[in-house]
Amino acid sequence: MGAYVSIRGWLECDEAQLAAIREITSAHEDDHYSNGWGTPRQHVNWTHYLFYGADIRESALDWFTDQITEIARIPASDNDGDLVRGLFLATHEVTGTTEWQVRDGQVFTSPADTRHQYLSE
């Protein structure tokens, strides 16, 4: 049957980057786990947020990490130079919780801080 990983987190971007993110997530549409992506009902002020929350099979991890890696590479869309940023926690049933930081055009992976341990209990 395989192990599951609980993924929850968000991305921060501007309007042009959000359009690029939607293209990427649409290209990875699987009619199942892709339903974990969501946005606020209505945009508020200048930063756009995109959230992900789902329990996925371990075998689908590459499907998700390929997306956030591609999203991280989206260039700045204006002179302020802001890239897409975000944070995800992934709790594996067996190996525990990992933190994925989307910043500086990359995805940085590290063991999650012990203060997030309550999320996997």
Rank of each mutant, 00 (worst) to 15 (best):
C13V: 02
A27S: 11
Q42P: 06
F51G: 10
W63L: 13
L61A: 12
S26I: 05
G53F: 06
G38C: 13
A19P: 03
I21F: 05
E58Y: 15
A60S: 10
T47Y: 00
G9W: 01
D66T: 10
T65K: 11
I7Q: 08
I56T: 07
R41C: 11
W37H: 03
H43L: 13
L50H: 01
D66I: 02
N45E: 12
R8A: 15
E29G: 05
A19V: 08
V44A: 09
G53K: 13
R22Y: 03
E58L: 10
G36P: 03
G53R: 11
G36W: 00
W63A: 07
T65F: 12
L50Q: 15
H28K: 05
D14I: 00
L50S: 06
V44H: 13
A16K: 09
A54D: 13
G9R: 04
G38R: 08
S34A: 09
W10E: 12
S6G: 07
P40G: 03
L11F: 03
G36Y: 00
H32F: 06
D31F: 14
I21Y: 00
R57I: 01
L11W: 06
S26W: 02
W63D: 05
Y52N: 09
F51N: 09
A20T: 06
I7S: 04
I56H: 01
A60K: 10
H43Q: 12
